[in-house]
Amino acid sequence: MPEVLRYAAFIDPSEADGGNPAGVVLDADGLDDAEMQRIAADVGYAETAFLVGQDGAARRIRYYSPIAEVPFCGHATIATAVVLAEREGAGLFRFATPVGDVPIETIATDAGIRATFTSVDPVVSDLAPDVREALLALLGLSESDLDGAYGPRIARAGNPHPVLVIADRARFDGFSFDPVAVRSLMDEQGWTGTVTVMHRDPAGDWEARNLFPVGAITEDPATGSAAASFGGYLRALRAVPVGETTHVRIRQGRHVGRPCLLEVEIPPTGGIRVSGSAAAL
């Protein structure tokens, strides 16, 4: 049985008991699909990452939730890169993921290792009206709850994420949902990522609730793939300055008692850069 490391990623240094837990298996070459799935289910975190050999200069990586393989997972990528940097020294790593090659830079700081991955090029498309209506109904929301400056879309930077932006903080904090019904819609639509619900605070930072019903989990504490997808969403909507690199901060996890911080760099073109730290649990 290979060693399973447990790390929390996207730790907010201003908060205690935060970060999104991820499993990390550094030597999974000898494991088949069923064994990786079983380990991920036993670990019980939103995702566990498995390094499964080399693809040229890149390390092949796969991600499993407790119920299925996931094409890409940002927080498990950050956690795995931090583990490698702690053991091999900080620098540039490259992961061959099921969605394409993802470079990840690591640097040593006084607070520990900080990692930044660059996503695959994001793609943003319309959310079909009937699906939009069904999703809002499952969350107990209406069109009037949405921020008119940010229309619903599907954003993909590895995984597809439907994106909703709620205007009112109380509605953002207060909506609830049936995890089974949301999972059913996600499976029906092929949404392998999360349902991404956002709110912008008066200071200009963003807060996220990422719905991801798997096993005992209902909401993900921090979602790197959703942060990258949301960066692509903002760029596609021209909600950030055109032709400039923009930095935004996303806080997540408050609603599930694990506050997290994701820092997002949105260049004029290409992949979105998402940064965070991680530490052993």
Rank of each mutant, 00 (worst) to 15 (best):
F10R: 11
D29F: 09
D32N: 15
A34G: 04
M36T: 12
M36N: 05
A41D: 09
A41R: 15
V43G: 01
G44W: 01
G44R: 08
A46V: 14
T48M: 03
D55M: 02
G56A: 08
A58Y: 05
A58F: 06
C73R: 10
A76H: 07
A79C: 07
E88A: 06
G89S: 07
G91Y: 06
F95W: 12
A96E: 08
T97W: 01
D121W: 02
L127T: 11
A128D: 14
D130L: 13
V131P: 00
L136S: 07
S142W: 00
D147L: 13
Y150P: 00
Y150M: 13
Y150N: 06
G151C: 08
I154C: 04
A157G: 03
G158N: 10
N159I: 04
H161I: 14
V165G: 06
D168T: 04
G174H: 11
F177A: 02
P179K: 08
V180R: 15
L185V: 07
G190F: 10
V195W: 01
H199P: 05
R200V: 02
F212Y: 15
P221F: 09
G231M: 00
G232V: 13
G232S: 08
V240M: 06
R249E: 14
R258T: 00
L261S: 09
L261Q: 11
L262C: 03
E265V: 15
E265I: 13
R273A: 05
V274S: 01
G276M: 13
